[in-house]
Design a protein around this nucleic acid. Sequence first.
DNA 1: ATAGGATTGTTCGAATTCGAACCAGCCGTC
DNA 2: GACGGCTGGTTCGAATTCGAACAATCCTAT
Lengths: 172, 172
Amino acid sequence: MSAGDYESRWLAPDVNAVWTRFLHVTHRLEHHIDRRLQEQHGITHTQYEILVRLADSDERAMRMSDLAESIVTAKSAVTYQINKLSEMGLVSRKKCGRDNRGIWVHLTEDGAERLEHAAPCILSLVRELFLDAINCDQAAELDKLLGTWSDNLDEHDRNPIGPPEHAGPQAA
Amino acid sequence: MSAGDYESRWLAPDVNAVWTRFLHVTHRLEHHIDRRLQEQHGITHTQYEILVRLADSDERAMRMSDLAESIVTAKSAVTYQINKLSEMGLVSRKKCGRDNRGIWVHLTEDGAERLEHAAPCILSLVRELFLDAINCDQAAELDKLLGTWSDNLDEHDRNPIGPPEHAGPQAA
DNA sequence: ATAGGATTGTTCGAATTCGAACCAGCCGTC
DNA sequence: GACGGCTGGTTCGAATTCGAACAATCCTAT
């Protein structure tokens, strides 16, 4: 099983392993964080992410759509979560004058407080699990990779059929 | 790592960015693949993963538990999915003599065929989105990173309170 | 001004996931 | 050989997600 002689439809085993491992690890990371967050702070990872994004924004506010894109989920899911967070009092909706259909979601004082409370816990987790493993060079490298992946995804989103160079093995 | 003057509770902004980006990209990847798989082959990414694991196993069969661990989801979710796949005829359950409570899930001929059909499409996607971005050295580097992350997770699973060195900033 | 088309956020039903409770079968010890 | 503890799978209800359909609003070109 050497590397070079694989049909283009298959992945060389070593490369395949990297991909599999990638999936495995990302899922585990996700679960681990989610679990800890729920047990210790009573919020989901998605909810936490929403609070973070809000806190990082100017005015501590964001539009629903931007939130959806930033979290990478369907708009309807954001509506659902904002309802939840709103009931919890961590977030509040306000109309924005400029665009009458748009809605600004604001981080409330309670929300900010809850975040302050939860962040150290989860950040230390991220550090221990994820960041302590990488030094400066690796971080830069990883960041570059992430950038490329992101660009690839952009490319694919613009041109759903796939890059023309490959002439697309799509099972039409 | 860098920027030494941050409170230990917070992450230096650049490092934070890497983490955020990581989440963003992994989610997008997941969605993209899932979507394509559903549109073009009528199966979920989880289902596809299950088929792959089965195909890669000896005898093309696996136990439910192993499957659950391999896919990183709750056992109940596996039961659900295997029911689905079973209805579709891509998979079949068989008792194993040795352990009377255990169940072997086999990949059927139809399942193998369906996989053969779907794999090239999704693999080319993985290649384009994920693998083309990295050369051999980077792949090795990434693999090492994945290994470390995996080990960290193992460590945490064994010792849920977190590594003793940090004395744990848990918000009790 | 206005029609056509895009964008914003919500609602709805279907699919999927999770965790806890549960039953059945295995295993070590007495 | 029976007992208590473990493990493997399933069932159940709750939570969350998605995509499609919808209503309101904005924007652009005429």
